[in-house]
Write a protein that binds this DNA or RNA. Sequence first.
DNA 1: ATGAAAGCGCTAACAG
DNA 2: CTGTTAGCGCTTTCAT
Lengths: 386, 386
Amino acid sequence: MHAECTLGSSASFPSGVCGIYAGHRFVGETYSHECYHAGLRSQLMDIREIASRAKVSTATVSRTINRVPTVDPQLAKRVWKVVDELGYYPNSVARSLVSGRSRVFGLIVSEITNPFFPEIVQTFENLAVQNNYEILLTSTVYDSKRMELSVRRMIERRVDGVAILTFGMEDSLIEHLHFRKVPLVFVDVGPNLPRVSNICINYKNGIRQAVQHLAALRHTRIAFVSGPPHLKSALARRRAFEESMEEIGLDPALIVVGDHTVEGGIRALVEIAGKRNRPTAVLCSNDMTAIGVMGEAYQRDLEIPRHLSVVGFDDIRLAQFMIPPLTTVQMSQPELAKIAFDALMNEVERDEPLRGRTDYQMNTNLVLRQSTALAPQRATTRHSKS
Amino acid sequence: MHAECTLGSSASFPSGVCGIYAGHRFVGETYSHECYHAGLRSQLMDIREIASRAKVSTATVSRTINRVPTVDPQLAKRVWKVVDELGYYPNSVARSLVSGRSRVFGLIVSEITNPFFPEIVQTFENLAVQNNYEILLTSTVYDSKRMELSVRRMIERRVDGVAILTFGMEDSLIEHLHFRKVPLVFVDVGPNLPRVSNICINYKNGIRQAVQHLAALRHTRIAFVSGPPHLKSALARRRAFEESMEEIGLDPALIVVGDHTVEGGIRALVEIAGKRNRPTAVLCSNDMTAIGVMGEAYQRDLEIPRHLSVVGFDDIRLAQFMIPPLTTVQMSQPELAKIAFDALMNEVERDEPLRGRTDYQMNTNLVLRQSTALAPQRATTRHSKS
DNA sequence: ATGAAAGCGCTAACAG
DNA sequence: CTGTTAGCGCTTTCAT
């Protein structure tokens, strides 16, 4: 009946708890000599309670639970039985304290509500579950006080590593973490230090594909809506755009400075729409911008893709549900999350830290959907979507 | 120079760390008699290190840091100075162990990538920061194994409370938490037990508004796309729809069983579009469904709102960025998160648990945007959006 | 007001 | 192979 183990790979719950829950008082009634402070101790069970009930030492309970192979199967069975019956769960706070490892990874994002992140958090969490880790999620909401707090919280909770997916973290904060020898992983901006991993995104590949796709659709007046200029990843995208245009002998029709928000996209479209000899295609530095562009185009009866082709960047989940579905450069969030998580795991398991940064590469690729079409002919035939 | 305090309400970082970081070795060099194990101890500072440097006892350091008012200002200043210089951060793992309170709230959601949740997580995190809490986020991804794991993780980490925002949690898991006296908060489905809070959503109000809005636009053939039938909150929405229709003497034109996903919305539109005497308006049980409906309508050249009015439910952030912006019933996610967080805080701070459940109420309201319009006239004048 | 010391629940030496 | 015991870093009596 109680043959199943409560802990370890089998994730099943103890079958005994319901009985206990149903009214069976078990604290203090058969308390052994080891209980010198019954009243003050946890109202529930601890390792000593298990030990005394299974008539073994706490060390044996610990070993059993941690699957140390040298424990006598007989004893182990007795221990598991009690663990199972009492629904005992080891206190990971105590475990962390003694082991010095919290089994928690910090994940710092700029804003959880930014659709770029949920997919990342989800993948991170999946990996955490698989590896018996927890994730401590904090968002900086672009506020330097909040960034400080994020870092402080990570340090106080003694996380085993931090993925910094917020763009624009002050160096002093990074030093705080690095000083405490916490493994760190960054996107694009990782400093060359031990215990630091850096994920290098190949922006050029996807953006070149986007530009060439537009050119193939006979667009020649192609605009770009950039991200915030202080953001390294945004600059890289812009540069990739300019280079890709130059490669095929095209001049950017217009470069609007955006800010990676929907509102920025709206403003950008206003500017684009107002331009004489209006661009026929826009490449946006991220999908939120593209969403803003599309929304404002709709308000102005500018049809997409008939009058204007739009390409995004990131491929957030929503991109495919836009109307029309958004053609965009995919920067796979699950892949990014996996690389980040693995980088942290590698660092945690490494005995001797490396001399410097570890680099990881990630590619980007165009995903074709329905927000791009042949460039409108100048006052001759009209190309509608059907 | 080091006048600022490192800890407490002032969130500023110690100014001394950079110097230390820049090469000043401080472990072991002035280690006092209290250091009996320098090599094995934390490579960084702990409370004893602070104590010995400030020439006070660890108790005094602890009291200072915790702002116990009885400490001598002279001593306190000395302590703060050292804390500041060394960039000491108390180890909250140890704190949790001794205090028995982890200052972590669990947050169980069904899927982080479901756009309904990010806003909730963000608000929860904001409140957590304000109250010196951490959040332990887990997602069940509709998998019972993962649900078990979620609960197990919460218990092992000794969370101080759990907000269960996943719909359809098995009773046995809830018992596990409740058995360990963990405060719990639910939406709609909270059992009547001590330390349980329940947030009752008034679905009817918003849905009635939606129905009356459509009726006022002269829609008479109104369809409803439901959520998964096993979901209590989805059933409540459906019932609210039926009642609201009945109130004004209308029969539902069609009720399609959906599943709260975009794909379900797509299927629903296929069914709606294929019906002879097609409904002119659809009310969807959530926004994801509405997005699916709109997407598929686009694919079929069914214009929204000209040919079909669409209303969603939830008012996820994206709703306003859809094309056209989606008219929807708002169920404020920030408000929900705040109620949930406060409920947990109230429970944690309560000395004696109440006899039974605590109830909280939350309303819903229609938000008008552009996905609804006058019902198309039967083969007479056409109402276009301009 | 301050310090010494006893633990919080667990793990890991070290003995047996 | 098992048990005893000394802590992990902190808070909190209990004396002083």
